[in-house]
Amino acid sequence: MNDNNKKLKETTNPVGSILFGWLDHRHSTRIIIGTLSVSCFVLLLVDFVYHRHGHFMIEEVPGFFALYGFLMFSLIILGATTLRYFVKRREDYYGTKAVDSDMTENKK
């Protein structure tokens, strides 16, 4: 573990460790998710305190944007997954003269 860490340190850019070093922390994911949840909660609360004026009625429903954002994002992921089922093809589908398979060779 220690050894591994050391290796990482060596190859990591110093600026990188300042900017994003905290991401390597064991609990970083939990911190991010925590912060996000808290801010979401706060933002939702604001809606009940502050009355919004919008062009449409629906905008004034508390939590409309929050709900819309959450649901629509999920819908996008769902839709995209379904779409992939239909349109996914192998990388060399268009033959070797397509850019995608070209990149495959670059990699090799």
Binding site: A66, G69, S74
Partner: peptide, 28 residues
């Protein structure tokens, strides 16, 4: 609100493993 909740949805979906994985393929 819109953006944070969308982000929240992303984290939830990632955690649940529903996010379409990045795979080597092309789409029609």
């Amino acid at each position: 609100q819109l953006l944070c909740f969308a982000l929240l949805a992303f984290t939830v979906i990632m955690k649940l493993g529903f996010h379409p994985p990045e795979i080597r393929a092309i789409n029609l």
